[in-house]
Amino acid sequence: MTVSGLLDRRLLFVTGKGGVGKTTVAAALGMLAASRGRRVLVCEVEPKGDVAAAYECPPAGFVPREVSPRLHVMEMDTEASLREYLRLNLRVPTIGRIGPVARAFDFVANAAPGVREILTVGKLCYEVREDHYDLVVVDAAATGHIVGQLAAPVGINELVKVGAVRSQTRWMLEILEDPRSTGVCIVTTPEEMPVNEAIDLAGRLEGETGVHLAALVANRVMPELFSRGEEEIFAALADVQATAALASAVGGAPASAFQEVLEAAALAVRIRRTGAGHLERLRVAVAAAQPLVYVPYLFARADGARAVRQVADSLGEELGE
């Protein structure tokens, strides 16, 4: 499977350590796929309104809303998912939020591990099975929780020996375990802990959930400032004499200002170098057989839709046509 095939899948779970920009990457993948003519649903599993905020549109609910041509957004709501499931599968009439049944739902969802998870994964698989969208992009749980979420159908199979739920898990697993239809996208930044978690998750994913790794995305990668020869020149500039000569060559500014400017570049070089080491670890541990997609650090004052657009553009370049 090549990188360019990433968006040809039907269901993409985007995960990563908290704070690495997984919501932005999920939103950007959705935007990119929609711009290439596909009908896309971007679903936020932990409904905080971050995906809608990334597109700078008002929060969406359980019912998907089209935010731009072909691009739809929804927030997961496990209780609504249960109601939909009951209505569609068991012909149980729609149940209101109030009353003992809602409390009973809270009880079962809390008591039975995996119920919330399976209602989440089930809803996503359902959207794929029904062909409502070409691609469902999931802003999924963070690396610490994604295995529990994706393993829910397997776990339920072990816990529940009979009943409708057990028979339901079979078709879900067919979708989830097919690498052509479903994949996980692990987002990381070039930092130690995010890379560690990415490596750990990549190692556990298939064995514990049956879902395949589709791609690794290295987000916020600092640009390479200097070639090897240029680095020598840069190092020579830090020499007191050279800095003083530079100050007189430019003229009109105190030497301290030059030091500050050189320090900023030195910091950028050191951060870049440390990050490159972590990405190299990732490449050796996982990415030798997996595509590693780079998204550059956005220095510009980019936020919301503008940042998502920029990330989508760089993902588009990396993924090719």
Partner: peptide, 15 residues
């Protein structure tokens, strides 16, 4: 009745 159809008796028993 609903829960049993979804989850099965054994599971409910464990719960």
């Amino acid at each position: 009745q609903v829960a049993d159809r979804i989850l099965g008796t054994q599971f409910l028993g464990d719960v």
